[in-house]
Amino acid sequence: MDLRLPNSFSPSSGDNFAIEKHLYASSWQTVAGTDEAGRGPLAGPVVAAAVILPRRGETSLWIDSKKLSPKKLLLLRSILMESDAFIGIGVSSVMEIEHINILQASLLAMERAVLNLSIQPDCLLVDGKFPTHIQLPQLPLIKGESRSASIAAASIIAKTHRDQLLCELHEQYPQYNFAQHKGYPTREHRNAIKKYGICPAHRRTFKGVKEYVDAASAPR
């Protein structure tokens, strides 16, 4: 089920909660935003979060996680976790990414995040072009982190949770230095793959990894 904004809708400049305000004024009771982190890396799961922000409160804090320093990300995560916001987190594994592709795995992680909210929203703002498969009215928003405080807040939770998971993977596979690059295809990461081969945390269907799959499967 899709939501649509009227053609006449024109949010006030700088108001990143304008879409949510419009939906609340249109009789929707609980609006959640959802976003994912980790579509581009060569290793690790994709993580999503869903956030329902309080109707009243300061929303200018919540901006796209990609524009924030690691220190600011952790600070904002802490503020969110201690606020009256409702937060759900969903994860889609490397195996799921390989079996259903990264887009579908991202949508699945978003669905899990929504289902992990302690209250069920009655509509959903989704970052990107595509709605999830969950049975809720939805509004996909391209560059949603810049247009919706709820999506931006979700991006902060998803990013920091995924970073934590990659730091845990670093403990298992320190040779790749996942704690530094979080699985993204940096030069350091690519060079580590060339030197050490791949590990179970790598996405074997991704360019930059799949070239090494046969070598990893060969008897030694």
Rank of each mutant, 00 (worst) to 15 (best):
L124H: 08
A50P: 00
Y184K: 04
K207G: 12
L141G: 02
L53Q: 07
A192T: 12
G57K: 03
K207P: 10
E145C: 03
S148Q: 07
R203D: 11
A50H: 01
A149S: 13
N101L: 12
Q180R: 11
S60V: 15
S13Q: 14
S10H: 06
L3P: 00
A18T: 09
I63T: 15
L136H: 11
A215M: 10
Y173I: 02
N101W: 10
I79K: 09
P131L: 03
M95P: 05
R39H: 06
N16V: 15
N191C: 12
L68Q: 04
I102W: 01
E58G: 15
M1T: 09
A85Y: 06
D214Y: 12
L103E: 04
P185M: 10
V51E: 02
K129D: 13
D84N: 15
K129E: 15
H202I: 07
L23N: 00
I156N: 01
L74F: 06
A154G: 10
A154M: 01
C123G: 01
S10N: 12
A109P: 10
L166A: 01
P11S: 10
S10T: 11
V209Q: 01
G33S: 06
P45W: 02
P137C: 09
H181C: 14
Y173F: 12
S155E: 09
T30E: 15
F17G: 03
T160Q: 04
D84I: 12
L125D: 04
D35N: 08
I151F: 06
Y173M: 09
A113N: 02
G14A: 08
L74G: 04
A25I: 05
Q120F: 10
T59V: 15
K21T: 07
L61D: 03
L23G: 03
A50G: 09
D15K: 00
L108H: 10
H22F: 15
F17A: 15
A113C: 09
G88L: 06
I151A: 01
P54D: 02
K207Y: 13
P45A: 04
Y184E: 07
P185R: 01
R220V: 09
R4M: 09
T30G: 05
N16H: 11
E168Y: 08
C167Q: 13
R187L: 14
S118Q: 10
P11D: 07
R77M: 01
P54M: 00
Y212S: 13
K66N: 12
A201I: 05
G14W: 14
G40V: 09
E36H: 08
C167K: 08
L42M: 06
I97T: 06
G33K: 00
G128T: 14
W62K: 02
E82K: 15
K21S: 11
A216N: 13
L3M: 14
A192Y: 07
N16R: 14
W62C: 03
A158L: 00
R204I: 13
P70M: 07
T132Y: 06
T186K: 08
H170M: 03
H99Y: 14
A37F: 05
V51Y: 00
E82M: 05
L103Q: 08
